[in-house]
Amino acid sequence: MDTKDLEILHLVQSNMRLTAEAIGQDVGLSPPAVQKRLQKLRASGVIEKEIAVLSPGKLGREMTIIVEVILERENRAHLDAFKRKMRKAPCVQQCYYTTGEGDFFLILTVKDIQEYEAFTQEYFFDESNISRFKTAVVMDRVKVSLDVL
């Protein structure tokens, strides 16, 4: 990867709909050269996914909740089981396996506190390996980004 690749990545991470022509003008490359570089960045896994970022509030997902989860047992089978459940849980946007006191941190979007309560019943209270969890309700989305560069 060189500086041109980094410049391309900087542009596309904020707007994947930019044309190869527009990117080429900004970085000083021809459109075919930009397309070739983008193909290599996708094939190598640098570009993992091209997605639309949706507004949770406009889709009725008014609440964002951050949850710290502490497991009772941390062997591989229990960790993998929890990871699988979180990958399948529709309201979980992000799930991080972490060091420190908490084993996992989750970012959820829910329509209301009742939906979050139902989530806790299904994934925490009905799960024997959850030691405890701490909940923080987001008051303001100050910055939301997946930008790396």
Rank of each mutant, 00 (worst) to 15 (best):
V142W: 05
K4S: 07
D112G: 05
I113V: 11
S30C: 08
R42Y: 09
A43T: 12
E72H: 11
G28C: 03
V110Q: 01
L71P: 04
R17L: 06
I113Y: 08
V12I: 15
L9I: 03
R76H: 15
R76E: 15
V110C: 04
E50H: 02
K40R: 15
A81E: 12
K85C: 06
C95L: 02
R84P: 00
K143T: 14
E122V: 01
V67C: 06
L71H: 03
G57S: 06
L29Q: 10
K85H: 08
A118W: 02
D112Q: 05
T99M: 14
L11R: 08
I8P: 06
I130N: 02
F105Y: 14
I70P: 00
L149G: 04
I113Q: 11
R84S: 12
D140K: 15
T3S: 11
I66E: 11
K83I: 14
R84I: 04
F104S: 04
E127M: 00
C95V: 11
G102K: 11
S44E: 15
E127N: 15
E101L: 13
K85G: 08
S44F: 10
L106C: 00
V12M: 02
F105R: 11
L108P: 02
P32M: 07
G100L: 07
I107G: 00
I130G: 01
I70N: 12
R37W: 07
D140I: 09
N75L: 08
P31H: 04
I66F: 12
E62K: 15
R73N: 14
A33L: 08
I23E: 00
A89N: 08
D140L: 11
T135N: 06
V46H: 09
R84A: 14
E101V: 12
I23P: 01
I23F: 01
M139L: 14
A81D: 13
